[in-house]
Design a protein around this nucleic acid. Structure first.
Lengths: 221, 221
DNA sequence: ACACCATATACTGTATCCAACCGGAATTCG
DNA sequence: CGAATTCCGGTTGGATACAGTATATGGTGT
Protein backbone atom coordinates (compact mmCIF):
# COMPACT_ATOMS: atom_id res chain seq x y z
CA UNK A 1 0.00 0.00 0.00
CA UNK A 2 2.78 2.44 0.72
CA UNK A 3 6.15 1.95 -0.93
CA UNK A 4 5.11 4.92 -3.03
CA UNK A 5 7.06 6.76 -5.67
CA UNK A 6 10.79 6.41 -5.68
CA UNK A 7 10.65 8.22 -8.98
CA UNK A 8 9.47 11.59 -7.75
CA UNK A 9 11.79 14.03 -6.09
CA UNK A 10 9.51 14.17 -3.10
CA UNK A 11 11.25 14.23 0.24
CA UNK A 12 10.20 11.17 2.14
CA UNK A 13 8.82 13.17 5.01
CA UNK A 14 7.02 10.22 6.48
CA UNK A 15 5.24 10.73 9.72
CA UNK A 16 6.23 8.52 12.57
CA UNK A 17 3.11 6.39 12.61
CA UNK A 18 3.69 5.55 8.95
CA UNK A 19 7.17 4.37 9.73
CA UNK A 20 5.92 2.36 12.66
CA UNK A 21 3.17 0.84 10.53
CA UNK A 22 5.69 -0.18 7.87
CA UNK A 23 7.94 -1.63 10.49
CA UNK A 24 5.22 -3.75 12.04
CA UNK A 25 4.00 -4.78 8.61
CA UNK A 26 7.46 -6.12 7.87
CA UNK A 27 7.62 -7.90 11.21
CA UNK A 28 4.37 -9.63 10.41
CA UNK A 29 5.16 -10.46 6.80
CA UNK A 30 8.59 -11.79 7.64
CA UNK A 31 7.15 -13.93 10.35
CA UNK A 32 8.74 -12.34 13.38
CA UNK A 33 5.24 -11.92 14.71
CA UNK A 34 3.30 -15.16 14.59
CA UNK A 35 -0.26 -15.13 13.28
CA UNK A 36 -2.64 -15.43 16.18
CA UNK A 37 -0.13 -14.14 18.68
CA UNK A 38 -0.96 -11.21 20.85
CA UNK A 39 0.84 -7.98 20.20
CA UNK A 40 2.39 -6.78 23.43
CA UNK A 41 1.95 -3.05 23.16
CA UNK A 42 4.38 -2.13 25.89
CA UNK A 43 7.09 -4.44 24.64
CA UNK A 44 6.93 -3.35 21.02
CA UNK A 45 6.75 0.29 22.01
CA UNK A 46 9.89 -0.31 23.98
CA UNK A 47 11.63 -2.11 21.13
CA UNK A 48 10.73 0.46 18.51
CA UNK A 49 11.59 3.35 20.78
CA UNK A 50 8.42 5.32 20.13
CA UNK A 51 5.64 6.39 22.39
CA UNK A 52 2.23 4.80 22.59
CA UNK A 53 0.32 7.40 20.59
CA UNK A 54 1.90 6.91 17.15
CA UNK A 55 2.17 3.22 17.85
CA UNK A 56 -1.52 2.89 18.45
CA UNK A 57 -2.25 4.95 15.38
CA UNK A 58 -0.14 2.52 13.41
CA UNK A 59 -2.12 -0.37 14.82
CA UNK A 60 -5.34 1.21 13.61
CA UNK A 61 -3.89 1.50 10.14
CA UNK A 62 -2.84 -2.12 10.07
CA UNK A 63 -6.24 -3.14 11.34
CA UNK A 64 -7.88 -1.26 8.49
CA UNK A 65 -5.57 -3.08 6.12
CA UNK A 66 -6.65 -6.37 7.59
CA UNK A 67 -3.27 -7.47 8.85
CA UNK A 68 -4.17 -7.40 12.51
CA UNK A 69 -7.32 -7.64 14.56
CA UNK A 70 -8.11 -5.34 17.43
CA UNK A 71 -10.55 -6.54 20.03
CA UNK A 72 -11.67 -3.70 22.28
CA UNK A 73 -10.03 -3.78 25.69
CA UNK A 74 -8.38 -7.09 24.87
CA UNK A 75 -5.52 -5.93 22.81
CA UNK A 76 -4.57 -6.68 19.27
CA UNK A 77 -3.29 -9.80 17.60
CA UNK A 78 -1.83 -10.72 14.27
CA UNK A 79 -4.67 -11.83 12.08
CA UNK A 80 -4.79 -15.55 11.63
CA UNK A 81 -6.05 -16.50 8.22
CA UNK A 82 -8.53 -19.31 8.00
CA UNK A 83 -8.79 -21.57 4.99
CA UNK A 84 -11.86 -19.63 3.88
CA UNK A 85 -10.04 -16.32 4.28
CA UNK A 86 -7.21 -17.42 2.05
CA UNK A 87 -9.55 -18.87 -0.53
CA UNK A 88 -11.63 -15.71 -0.66
CA UNK A 89 -8.54 -13.58 -1.06
CA UNK A 90 -7.18 -15.72 -3.85
CA UNK A 91 -10.54 -15.73 -5.58
CA UNK A 92 -10.63 -11.95 -5.52
CA UNK A 93 -6.97 -11.62 -6.38
CA UNK A 94 -7.49 -13.86 -9.40
CA UNK A 95 -10.10 -11.49 -10.79
CA UNK A 96 -7.86 -8.53 -10.04
CA UNK A 97 -5.03 -10.08 -11.97
CA UNK A 98 -7.35 -11.07 -14.77
CA UNK A 99 -8.40 -7.46 -15.07
CA UNK A 100 -4.81 -6.33 -14.82
CA UNK A 101 -3.73 -8.72 -17.55
CA UNK A 102 -6.58 -7.77 -19.85
CA UNK A 103 -6.10 -4.04 -19.57
CA UNK A 104 -2.31 -4.19 -19.48
CA UNK A 105 -2.37 -5.53 -23.02
CA UNK A 106 -4.31 -2.47 -24.10
CA UNK A 107 -2.47 0.15 -22.12
CA UNK A 108 1.15 -0.89 -21.76
CA UNK A 109 3.91 0.62 -23.85
CA UNK A 110 6.37 -1.53 -25.77
CA UNK A 111 9.20 -0.59 -23.47
CA UNK A 112 7.14 -1.60 -20.47
CA UNK A 113 6.52 -4.97 -22.02
CA UNK A 114 10.25 -5.23 -22.59
CA UNK A 115 10.80 -4.53 -18.93
CA UNK A 116 8.36 -7.26 -17.97
CA UNK A 117 10.30 -9.57 -20.25
CA UNK A 118 13.47 -8.60 -18.45
CA UNK A 119 11.99 -9.35 -15.07
CA UNK A 120 10.86 -12.69 -16.41
CA UNK A 121 14.31 -13.56 -17.76
CA UNK A 122 15.91 -12.80 -14.45
CA UNK A 123 13.34 -14.96 -12.69
CA UNK A 124 14.21 -17.78 -15.04
CA UNK A 125 17.83 -17.57 -14.00
CA UNK A 126 16.96 -17.76 -10.34
CA UNK A 127 14.71 -20.70 -11.10
CA UNK A 128 17.50 -22.54 -12.88
CA UNK A 129 19.92 -21.91 -10.06
CA UNK A 130 17.28 -22.81 -7.50
CA UNK A 131 17.48 -19.58 -5.53
CA UNK A 132 14.06 -19.41 -4.01
CA UNK A 133 14.25 -16.16 -2.13
CA UNK A 134 15.43 -13.89 -4.96
CA UNK A 135 12.96 -15.62 -7.27
CA UNK A 136 10.19 -14.98 -4.82
CA UNK A 137 11.09 -11.30 -4.54
CA UNK A 138 11.17 -10.88 -8.29
CA UNK A 139 7.91 -12.74 -8.59
CA UNK A 140 6.24 -10.20 -6.34
CA UNK A 141 7.76 -7.43 -8.37
CA UNK A 142 6.62 -9.00 -11.62
CA UNK A 143 3.00 -9.25 -10.57
CA UNK A 144 3.06 -5.78 -9.09
CA UNK A 145 4.50 -4.46 -12.32
CA UNK A 146 1.83 -6.10 -14.46
CA UNK A 147 -0.77 -4.58 -12.20
CA UNK A 148 0.77 -1.16 -12.68
CA UNK A 149 0.44 -1.57 -16.44
CA UNK A 150 -3.30 -1.50 -16.02
CA UNK A 151 -2.99 2.20 -15.17
CA UNK A 152 -5.54 1.50 -12.52
CA UNK A 153 -4.60 2.95 -9.15
CA UNK A 154 -7.36 1.20 -7.27
CA UNK A 155 -6.41 -2.14 -8.73
CA UNK A 156 -2.78 -1.67 -7.71
CA UNK A 157 -3.76 -0.71 -4.23
CA UNK A 158 -6.04 -3.68 -3.69
CA UNK A 159 -3.68 -6.13 -5.33
CA UNK A 160 -0.87 -4.86 -3.11
CA UNK A 161 -3.00 -5.12 -0.03
CA UNK A 162 -4.08 -8.70 -0.70
CA UNK A 163 -0.58 -9.75 -1.63
CA UNK A 164 0.69 -8.29 1.63
CA UNK A 165 -1.82 -10.30 3.58
CA UNK A 166 -0.91 -13.46 1.74
CA UNK A 167 2.81 -12.99 1.51
CA UNK A 168 3.88 -15.56 4.00
CA UNK A 169 1.49 -18.16 2.71
CA UNK A 170 2.50 -17.71 -0.90
CA UNK A 171 6.10 -18.11 0.07
CA UNK A 172 5.32 -21.41 1.70
CA UNK A 173 3.41 -22.35 -1.41
CA UNK A 174 6.07 -22.92 -4.02
CA UNK A 175 8.35 -25.08 -1.94
CA UNK A 176 7.75 -28.20 -4.02
CA UNK A 177 9.74 -28.49 -7.23
CA UNK A 178 6.94 -29.52 -9.57
CA UNK A 179 4.79 -26.67 -8.37
CA UNK A 180 7.57 -24.27 -8.93
CA UNK A 181 8.04 -25.58 -12.43
CA UNK A 182 4.34 -25.17 -13.19
CA UNK A 183 4.51 -21.59 -11.96
CA UNK A 184 7.45 -20.85 -14.22
CA UNK A 185 5.60 -22.34 -17.18
CA UNK A 186 2.66 -20.07 -16.42
CA UNK A 187 4.93 -17.08 -16.46
CA UNK A 188 6.31 -18.15 -19.79
CA UNK A 189 2.80 -18.20 -21.19
CA UNK A 190 2.05 -14.84 -19.64
CA UNK A 191 4.96 -13.27 -21.43
CA UNK A 192 3.80 -14.76 -24.71
CA UNK A 193 0.31 -13.40 -24.28
CA UNK A 194 1.57 -10.00 -23.20
CA UNK A 195 3.94 -9.76 -26.14
CA UNK A 196 1.06 -10.67 -28.45
CA UNK A 197 -1.11 -8.17 -26.56
CA UNK A 198 -3.73 -10.84 -26.18
CA UNK A 199 -5.52 -9.43 -23.15
CA UNK A 200 -8.13 -12.12 -22.85
CA UNK A 201 -5.53 -14.86 -22.83
CA UNK A 202 -3.20 -13.05 -20.44
CA UNK A 203 -6.06 -12.45 -18.05
CA UNK A 204 -7.09 -16.09 -18.21
CA UNK A 205 -3.58 -17.31 -17.53
CA UNK A 206 -3.08 -14.99 -14.60
CA UNK A 207 -6.38 -16.01 -13.04
CA UNK A 208 -5.55 -19.66 -13.64
CA UNK A 209 -2.12 -19.10 -12.13
CA UNK A 210 -3.78 -18.12 -8.88
CA UNK A 211 -6.16 -21.04 -8.85
CA UNK A 212 -3.03 -23.18 -9.05
CA UNK A 213 -1.67 -21.25 -6.11
CA UNK A 214 -4.75 -22.29 -4.19
CA UNK A 215 -4.12 -25.93 -5.06
CA UNK A 216 -0.56 -25.50 -3.86
CA UNK A 217 -1.46 -23.82 -0.68
CA UNK A 218 -4.72 -25.29 0.49
CA UNK A 219 -3.18 -28.30 2.21
CA UNK A 220 -0.60 -26.28 4.04
CA UNK A 221 -2.96 -24.07 6.01
CA UNK B 1 -25.29 9.67 18.16
CA UNK B 2 -27.70 7.35 16.45
CA UNK B 3 -25.66 4.37 15.39
CA UNK B 4 -28.29 2.81 13.21
CA UNK B 5 -27.99 -1.00 13.16
CA UNK B 6 -30.12 -2.58 15.84
CA UNK B 7 -30.28 -5.68 13.64
CA UNK B 8 -28.58 -8.41 15.63
CA UNK B 9 -28.20 -8.86 19.33
CA UNK B 10 -24.60 -7.94 18.90
CA UNK B 11 -23.05 -6.19 21.84
CA UNK B 12 -22.52 -2.58 20.94
CA UNK B 13 -19.14 -2.57 22.61
CA UNK B 14 -17.55 -0.38 20.02
CA UNK B 15 -14.46 1.46 20.95
CA UNK B 16 -14.58 5.19 20.70
CA UNK B 17 -12.35 5.53 17.68
CA UNK B 18 -14.60 3.17 15.78
CA UNK B 19 -17.58 5.32 16.61
CA UNK B 20 -15.69 8.44 15.62
CA UNK B 21 -14.58 6.82 12.37
CA UNK B 22 -18.16 5.89 11.53
CA UNK B 23 -19.34 9.36 12.38
CA UNK B 24 -16.78 11.06 10.15
CA UNK B 25 -17.46 8.54 7.41
CA UNK B 26 -21.09 9.55 7.50
CA UNK B 27 -20.20 13.23 7.50
CA UNK B 28 -18.14 12.71 4.38
CA UNK B 29 -20.60 10.47 2.58
CA UNK B 30 -23.55 12.74 3.33
CA UNK B 31 -21.61 15.69 2.09
CA UNK B 32 -21.27 17.66 5.30
CA UNK B 33 -17.56 17.61 4.69
CA UNK B 34 -16.71 18.75 1.19
CA UNK B 35 -14.17 16.76 -0.81
CA UNK B 36 -10.93 18.67 -0.92
CA UNK B 37 -11.69 20.63 2.21
CA UNK B 38 -9.30 20.59 5.09
CA UNK B 39 -10.35 18.80 8.23
CA UNK B 40 -10.01 21.12 11.18
CA UNK B 41 -8.91 18.78 13.91
CA UNK B 42 -9.64 21.09 16.80
CA UNK B 43 -13.08 22.02 15.56
CA UNK B 44 -14.25 18.49 14.86
CA UNK B 45 -12.82 17.25 18.13
CA UNK B 46 -14.84 19.96 19.80
CA UNK B 47 -18.02 19.13 17.89
CA UNK B 48 -17.79 15.42 18.49
CA UNK B 49 -16.90 15.86 22.11
CA UNK B 50 -13.97 13.49 22.09
CA UNK B 51 -10.31 14.00 22.71
CA UNK B 52 -7.56 13.99 20.14
CA UNK B 53 -6.36 10.46 20.78
CA UNK B 54 -9.35 8.50 19.46
CA UNK B 55 -9.99 11.17 16.86
CA UNK B 56 -6.59 10.85 15.29
CA UNK B 57 -6.80 7.07 15.41
CA UNK B 58 -10.04 7.39 13.50
CA UNK B 59 -8.35 9.59 10.92
CA UNK B 60 -5.70 6.95 10.39
CA UNK B 61 -8.41 4.37 9.80
CA UNK B 62 -10.20 6.53 7.27
CA UNK B 63 -6.93 7.26 5.52
CA UNK B 64 -6.28 3.54 5.19
CA UNK B 65 -9.77 3.19 3.75
CA UNK B 66 -8.96 5.88 1.23
CA UNK B 67 -11.62 8.34 2.29
CA UNK B 68 -9.24 11.03 3.47
CA UNK B 69 -5.66 12.00 2.74
CA UNK B 70 -3.16 12.87 5.44
CA UNK B 71 -0.21 14.98 4.43
CA UNK B 72 2.46 15.04 7.11
CA UNK B 73 2.63 18.31 9.00
CA UNK B 74 -0.02 19.80 6.73
CA UNK B 75 -3.13 18.28 8.13
CA UNK B 76 -5.72 16.01 6.58
CA UNK B 77 -8.35 16.64 3.96
CA UNK B 78 -11.28 14.82 2.51
CA UNK B 79 -10.04 12.94 -0.49
CA UNK B 80 -11.04 14.52 -3.71
CA UNK B 81 -11.66 11.97 -6.38
CA UNK B 82 -10.28 12.68 -9.80
CA UNK B 83 -11.92 11.40 -12.94
CA UNK B 84 -9.23 8.73 -13.14
CA UNK B 85 -9.85 7.72 -9.53
CA UNK B 86 -13.53 7.22 -10.13
CA UNK B 87 -12.95 5.33 -13.34
CA UNK B 88 -10.44 3.03 -11.74
CA UNK B 89 -12.78 2.31 -8.86
CA UNK B 90 -15.67 1.56 -11.16
CA UNK B 91 -13.50 -0.65 -13.30
CA UNK B 92 -12.48 -2.67 -10.27
CA UNK B 93 -15.95 -2.65 -8.81
CA UNK B 94 -17.33 -3.99 -12.07
CA UNK B 95 -15.06 -7.04 -11.84
CA UNK B 96 -15.97 -7.48 -8.20
CA UNK B 97 -19.64 -7.52 -9.03
CA UNK B 98 -19.06 -9.81 -11.97
CA UNK B 99 -17.38 -12.25 -9.62
CA UNK B 100 -20.15 -11.78 -7.08
CA UNK B 101 -22.82 -12.46 -9.66
CA UNK B 102 -21.10 -15.50 -11.06
CA UNK B 103 -20.48 -17.17 -7.73
CA UNK B 104 -23.77 -16.10 -6.20
CA UNK B 105 -25.55 -18.26 -8.77
CA UNK B 106 -23.57 -21.25 -7.57
CA UNK B 107 -23.71 -20.61 -3.87
CA UNK B 108 -26.96 -18.89 -3.01
CA UNK B 109 -29.89 -20.74 -1.49
CA UNK B 110 -33.37 -20.53 -2.95
CA UNK B 111 -34.62 -18.49 -0.05
CA UNK B 112 -31.81 -16.02 -0.51
CA UNK B 113 -32.75 -15.60 -4.13
CA UNK B 114 -36.30 -15.02 -2.99
CA UNK B 115 -35.06 -12.32 -0.68
CA UNK B 116 -33.19 -10.66 -3.52
CA UNK B 117 -36.41 -10.77 -5.51
CA UNK B 118 -38.17 -9.09 -2.62
CA UNK B 119 -35.63 -6.30 -2.47
CA UNK B 120 -36.03 -5.87 -6.19
CA UNK B 121 -39.83 -5.63 -5.98
CA UNK B 122 -39.61 -2.99 -3.32
CA UNK B 123 -37.16 -1.02 -5.43
CA UNK B 124 -39.60 -1.19 -8.31
CA UNK B 125 -42.28 0.41 -6.17
CA UNK B 126 -40.00 3.26 -5.19
CA UNK B 127 -39.07 3.68 -8.82
CA UNK B 128 -42.71 3.92 -9.86
CA UNK B 129 -43.48 6.45 -7.15
CA UNK B 130 -40.30 8.34 -7.95
CA UNK B 131 -38.86 8.25 -4.44
CA UNK B 132 -35.17 8.56 -5.12
CA UNK B 133 -33.75 8.37 -1.65
CA UNK B 134 -35.42 5.15 -0.50
CA UNK B 135 -34.68 3.62 -3.89
CA UNK B 136 -31.07 4.57 -3.54
CA UNK B 137 -30.82 3.04 -0.09
CA UNK B 138 -32.41 -0.20 -1.26
CA UNK B 139 -30.13 -0.23 -4.26
CA UNK B 140 -27.10 -0.19 -2.00
CA UNK B 141 -28.62 -2.96 0.04
CA UNK B 142 -29.38 -5.01 -3.05
CA UNK B 143 -25.85 -4.91 -4.36
CA UNK B 144 -24.42 -5.56 -0.93
CA UNK B 145 -26.72 -8.53 -0.59
CA UNK B 146 -25.71 -10.02 -3.92
CA UNK B 147 -22.10 -9.63 -2.86
CA UNK B 148 -22.82 -11.49 0.35
CA UNK B 149 -24.24 -14.40 -1.66
CA UNK B 150 -20.77 -15.01 -3.03
CA UNK B 151 -19.79 -16.24 0.43
CA UNK B 152 -16.61 -14.33 -0.14
CA UNK B 153 -15.65 -12.19 2.82
CA UNK B 154 -12.86 -10.38 1.01
CA UNK B 155 -15.12 -9.53 -1.89
CA UNK B 156 -17.75 -8.09 0.44
CA UNK B 157 -15.15 -6.04 2.24
CA UNK B 158 -13.67 -4.54 -0.91
CA UNK B 159 -17.02 -3.96 -2.54
CA UNK B 160 -18.23 -2.18 0.58
CA UNK B 161 -15.11 -0.08 0.70
CA UNK B 162 -15.32 1.05 -2.89
CA UNK B 163 -19.02 1.72 -2.63
CA UNK B 164 -18.38 3.87 0.42
CA UNK B 165 -15.84 5.91 -1.47
CA UNK B 166 -18.19 6.36 -4.39
CA UNK B 167 -21.42 6.84 -2.49
CA UNK B 168 -21.90 10.49 -3.10
CA UNK B 169 -21.03 10.24 -6.75
CA UNK B 170 -23.35 7.34 -7.40
CA UNK B 171 -26.15 9.22 -5.77
CA UNK B 172 -25.58 12.14 -8.08
CA UNK B 173 -25.51 9.66 -10.92
CA UNK B 174 -29.06 8.54 -11.33
CA UNK B 175 -30.69 11.93 -11.28
CA UNK B 176 -31.80 11.77 -14.88
CA UNK B 177 -34.98 9.81 -15.60
CA UNK B 178 -33.79 7.80 -18.60
CA UNK B 179 -30.70 6.70 -16.72
CA UNK B 180 -32.80 5.63 -13.83
CA UNK B 181 -35.01 3.62 -16.13
CA UNK B 182 -31.99 1.90 -17.67
CA UNK B 183 -30.75 0.99 -14.21
CA UNK B 184 -34.10 -0.51 -13.31
CA UNK B 185 -34.11 -2.55 -16.50
CA UNK B 186 -30.67 -3.87 -15.62
CA UNK B 187 -31.95 -4.97 -12.26
CA UNK B 188 -34.84 -6.74 -13.89
CA UNK B 189 -32.38 -8.69 -16.02
CA UNK B 190 -30.25 -9.45 -13.00
CA UNK B 191 -33.16 -11.03 -11.22
CA UNK B 192 -33.91 -13.16 -14.27
CA UNK B 193 -30.34 -14.38 -14.47
CA UNK B 194 -30.16 -15.04 -10.75
CA UNK B 195 -33.42 -16.97 -10.77
CA UNK B 196 -32.10 -19.03 -13.68
CA UNK B 197 -28.80 -19.39 -11.81
CA UNK B 198 -27.01 -18.27 -14.92
CA UNK B 199 -23.82 -17.03 -13.31
CA UNK B 200 -22.08 -15.96 -16.46
CA UNK B 201 -25.00 -13.84 -17.54
CA UNK B 202 -25.58 -12.32 -14.12
CA UNK B 203 -21.93 -11.42 -13.88
CA UNK B 204 -21.97 -9.81 -17.30
CA UNK B 205 -25.05 -7.76 -16.52
CA UNK B 206 -23.66 -6.54 -13.23
CA UNK B 207 -20.39 -5.51 -14.83
CA UNK B 208 -22.24 -3.83 -17.65
CA UNK B 209 -24.46 -2.09 -15.13
CA UNK B 210 -21.39 -0.41 -13.72
CA UNK B 211 -20.02 0.64 -17.06
CA UNK B 212 -23.34 2.40 -17.53
CA UNK B 213 -22.80 4.05 -14.19
CA UNK B 214 -19.55 5.39 -15.56
CA UNK B 215 -21.34 6.82 -18.58
CA UNK B 216 -23.84 8.42 -16.21
CA UNK B 217 -21.27 9.85 -13.94
CA UNK B 218 -18.30 10.82 -16.04
CA UNK B 219 -19.64 14.18 -17.09
CA UNK B 220 -20.61 15.20 -13.60
CA UNK B 221 -17.17 15.02 -12.03
C1' DA C 1 7.64 45.44 -6.10
C1' DC C 2 10.07 41.62 -4.57
C1' DA C 3 12.66 39.00 -1.44
C1' DC C 4 13.74 37.68 3.00
C1' DC C 5 13.11 37.11 7.76
C1' DA C 6 10.33 36.81 11.96
C1' DT C 7 6.38 35.51 14.18
C1' DA C 8 2.09 32.97 14.65
C1' DT C 9 -0.58 29.06 14.00
C1' DA C 10 -1.24 24.93 13.44
C1' DC C 11 -0.01 19.74 13.41
C1' DT C 12 3.03 16.00 15.32
C1' DG C 13 4.98 13.45 18.96
C1' DT C 14 5.65 12.59 24.01
C1' DA C 15 4.56 11.89 28.74
C1' DT C 16 1.44 11.07 32.33
C1' DC C 17 -2.79 10.19 34.55
C1' DC C 18 -7.06 7.92 35.31
C1' DA C 19 -10.87 4.94 34.18
C1' DA C 20 -12.68 0.79 32.29
C1' DC C 21 -12.20 -3.80 31.33
C1' DC C 22 -10.60 -8.77 30.87
C1' DG C 23 -8.83 -12.82 33.06
C1' DG C 24 -7.41 -15.44 36.59
C1' DA C 25 -7.06 -16.59 41.41
C1' DA C 26 -8.81 -16.80 45.85
C1' DT C 27 -12.68 -17.12 48.73
C1' DT C 28 -17.05 -18.48 50.12
C1' DC C 29 -21.24 -20.91 49.97
C1' DG C 30 -24.12 -24.88 48.80
C1' DC D 1 -15.55 -31.07 47.50
C1' DG D 2 -17.21 -28.46 43.64
C1' DA D 3 -19.11 -24.34 41.66
C1' DA D 4 -20.20 -19.63 41.58
C1' DT D 5 -19.03 -15.15 43.00
C1' DT D 6 -15.93 -11.65 44.07
C1' DC D 7 -11.74 -9.38 44.13
C1' DC D 8 -7.38 -7.97 42.27
C1' DG D 9 -3.61 -7.27 38.97
C1' DG D 10 -2.37 -6.07 34.59
C1' DT D 11 -3.44 -4.13 30.21
C1' DT D 12 -5.86 -1.25 27.16
C1' DG D 13 -8.53 2.95 26.14
C1' DG D 14 -9.18 7.89 26.61
C1' DA D 15 -8.01 12.67 28.24
C1' DT D 16 -4.91 16.28 28.83
C1' DA D 17 -0.87 18.98 29.07
C1' DC D 18 3.43 20.07 27.02
C1' DA D 19 7.33 20.31 23.80
C1' DG D 20 9.05 20.47 19.13
C1' DT D 21 8.64 21.56 14.33
C1' DA D 22 7.01 22.83 9.94
C1' DT D 23 4.07 25.74 7.30
C1' DA D 24 2.14 29.95 6.41
C1' DT D 25 1.52 34.69 6.99
C1' DG D 26 2.69 39.26 7.40
C1' DG D 27 5.84 42.80 7.87
C1' DT D 28 10.10 45.08 6.79
C1' DG D 29 14.04 46.37 4.18
C1' DT D 30 16.32 46.99 -0.14
Amino acid sequence: MEAGEPTSLQIEKQSLHDQVASRIRDLIIEGHLEPGSRIDEAKLVEQLGVSRTPFREALRTLAAEGLIVIRPARGSMVRKLSRADVFSMLEVLAEMERLAGRTACERASDSEIAHARDLHERMLEYYRSGERMPYYKLNQEFHTFIASLSRNETLCEIQGNIMARLKRIRFIGNSEPEHWRAAVDDHEEMMDALAARDGQRLGDIMAHHLSETWQRVKNVI
